[in-house]
């Protein structure tokens, strides 16, 4: 199917369909809410956004930074419009200010504040700030893009659903450029092959 880019307020369909993300219903007609790629089947319609902020969902694996160390717990930052608080009773290890952790999101309440569990402390590495809507393209179909980084660049890489990427890699400049290329060209198809060509040319 040909890809189509839609803009906010664009009329999509007047048929009865199950509504996915980033669409809204007005007078029995479906309109797009964001700039994005239209994804439509016989009974389902949604728009994949091309830019946006992270909206937390339960069971997401996300990367967080310890922003502050208080007497009773830690303030953690995670690329959203709020910070989260982790009581010291919830974690056995001690965290330090500035440490990067990977955790599972266990619950989200109405105000979009979150709770986390399964906390892993990540070792020394670099952090890249990408848009959360690009994460599916950064991972690729069946982890194809992620395996490309692991096999060709021998990178140790963790991608959080919130758009933050932690990595430890000798050729980190190539990796960062490859990630930037994916982010800037996420609307194009056959991206894995183009990125493979780019890495093989530059390595």
């Amino acid at each position: 199917m040909d890809k189509k880019i839609v803009i906010p307020g664009e009329f999509l369909t007047d048929q009865r369909k199950k509504l996915g993300s980033n669409v809204f219903l007005l007078n029995n007609k479906v309109y797009s809410q964001v700039v994005g790629l239209l994804s439509e089947s016989t009974d389902y319609i949604s728009v994949v956004a091309l830019n946006g902020i992270y909206k937390p969902n339960v069971n997401d694996g996300i990367i967080l930074i310890v922003k502050d160390d208080l007497p009773n717990g830690y303030v953690l930052e995670y690329n959203s419009f709020t910070d989260t608080f982790l009581p010291k009773s919830m974690i056995k290890k001690e965290l330090k200010k500035g440490q990067i952790i990977f955790a599972r999101l266990s619950s989200v309440n109405d105000n979009d504040t979150i709770d986390i569990d399964h906390i892993n402390i990540l070792p020394k590495g670099r952090l890249f700030n990408a848009s959360p809507v690009k994460v599916p393209r950064l991972i690729g179909k069946n982890d194809s893009m992620l395996n490309l980084f692991k096999n060709l660049l021998k990178a140790n890489i963790v991608i959080g659903k919130n758009g933050w990427i932690w990595y430890n890699c000798d050729n980190y400049l190539i990796l960062e450029n490859a990630i930037n290329l994916i982010i800037n060209n996420s609307q194009k198809s056959n991206l894995t092959n183009s990125i493979k060509e780019y890495i093989e040319k530059n390595i």
Binding site: I7, P8, V34, V35, A49, N51
Partner: peptide, 11 residues
Amino acid sequence: CADAGLPMKGL
């Protein structure tokens, strides 16, 4: 606003 990915009813 549209470029920032904010949900909008229109432009």
